[in-house]
Design a protein around this nucleic acid. Sequence first.
DNA 1: CTGTTAGCGCGTTCAC
DNA 2: GTGAACGCGCTAACAG
Lengths: 349, 349
Amino acid sequence: MHQRRTRTVDALRMEDVAALAGVSPMTVSRTLRDPGSVSKAMRDRVQAAVNDMGYVPNRLAGSLASQRSHVVGLIVPGLGDSLYAGMAQAIEGVLSEHGLYLLIAASHHDPATEEAAIAAFLAQRVCGLILHSTRHTDRAKILVQAAAVPTVEIGRLTQTPLDLCVSYSGFAAAKAMVMHLGGLGYRRIGFVSLPLRNNERSVERRRGYLAGLRELGLTALPNLMVEASPGFAGGVDAVVRLVQRDPAIDAIFFAADVMAVGALFECQRRGWAVPGQIAIASFDDVDLLSHVVPTITSLRIPREEIGRRSAAMVVSRLNGTFSGPRIIDLKFDVMTRESTTRAGGDIAP
Amino acid sequence: MHQRRTRTVDALRMEDVAALAGVSPMTVSRTLRDPGSVSKAMRDRVQAAVNDMGYVPNRLAGSLASQRSHVVGLIVPGLGDSLYAGMAQAIEGVLSEHGLYLLIAASHHDPATEEAAIAAFLAQRVCGLILHSTRHTDRAKILVQAAAVPTVEIGRLTQTPLDLCVSYSGFAAAKAMVMHLGGLGYRRIGFVSLPLRNNERSVERRRGYLAGLRELGLTALPNLMVEASPGFAGGVDAVVRLVQRDPAIDAIFFAADVMAVGALFECQRRGWAVPGQIAIASFDDVDLLSHVVPTITSLRIPREEIGRRSAAMVVSRLNGTFSGPRIIDLKFDVMTRESTTRAGGDIAP
DNA sequence: CTGTTAGCGCGTTCAC
DNA sequence: GTGAACGCGCTAACAG
């Protein structure tokens, strides 16, 4: 015969609280989840017992029973980059207002790593998923769609999201900046890209650059395009290479903010005037850009808004109050600053 | 009579996989958790069935049954600050190597908010807790200790941790920097603090500053100490206030990196020579400090190591392989850079 | 408004 | 090396 297994664990259960309060466990459960559904007398008795004992409900058991969890999964390339950290911060803020928690994993721009994280999160039965990447393995797509959990992709505006998408057009943004530089009179506009491998966003920005040139009637010169590693060092390296290849270059558009700042500092060290000899423009408006001397012209990307809206979409899907488009195209702005000012005066006619 | 509740949910269970593979659910469970404990023939049959069906196990149920979860909770002031984001990144890296996941919440430097997050995480039955703050409400302390879950505090070196602590001494670091500046010959050394309210780390750094002055035989002058808000703007504001109060000030030590950079830019705008008229030193070595012109002298804080070590401590506690001290005091370094170079030559005798 | 019953999908424990 | 029974702690569904 089996011997009845006895509880060796010391964590309190609802039953214990119920016993102290002299009610059934069900009343405790209701009191905790929906105090309004219980009479005031009961509620007070239960609350007192909960406080006295220091009872902490087991949400694992609750989620299993109710088939509903309170955890949203977020997968970003990494938290080291302030762009992703800022989005995560905004997401966490919205979720915590709604009693939801945030599980985070890093994909390191690798679809296989992302797939593993998705599988792990679905195993944890997350109630929603926010993915930075828009590029997934086939199995990842199948898993997400089978799980039928609200899923928002945020890294890029895709017309074929797994479910929902909130982002901005990197193509349009890059193009707008090139047009802006052209409007200021710049003609030899260089472009510094992030690594294009496994990164559709980089590719998209580069396409925007090329489209901008075309619209301006300028020829894309291979000498004016380089790929650089992220970070200050990448920008330093890139500006030096570009000027060596084409000393007549008059503006450089960097596909990421930190690179632009690194390049600016390198110009200062070498005595290259910014603006004057070289104008500098950047993507993705971090605080730093409006504090350096000179301040750097850049694109203001709605990163906090992407975070908030994506979290809000998950929340409204869970509430059943979702309505509106599945794809949200947020706007960006060109922030004109000192680093692109023309010598003589202002905007060319 | 009760009608037997029928499963309306479509998620697969082990039973389904087991049926397809022609084995018992138990064999599926074992195959997934410990493939070595099952014969190769069984293992292959089960794996095939799992893949065919796209089965994703339910870890909520698993954790409930085994009384063991795979989720670690992290509570930081916020993810917006790159310091915390960097730690979170390092923690996530170590945890994911060990099959653990990271739940994150922001405390916004508020003990009550922290308490709520701790309670929520314990309700989710996290298997470990990493807390940035070392200041907690009484109830938070009781909850953590009752949960008996490995807990690491990382924001500050405390001699009375809830359980474990990995950090560095902010007092010793601030003092070391002041001594360093004194050694370079600076005598009117100003100090810019972060808000002191609800922030033991700020208080500790300020104590270190005062101790350094004392050791140098210098008097602490109220005019040389200001409190500023974090961020570039705080630094801009602080440097201006300090110079107005005491035009003879020869060095300023900022208790946070971004403030120091903001101050440097403001000096450039106003034509105050750095170094020369004012030397600038900073706390907490972000990349930016070694890229600006001039580069900024600062303290290199072992933030990644704090992240890695704290996660490793949780992991080893879970493994039962933990040994070693409960409090780990990591070392910092003074990084001497251009912003504190003396006019004539180098270090004073 | 409150209590009873019957699982949620697994892992533990034991027997084979 | 494999299977059967039982319960982890909670909530859904229903009866009163």
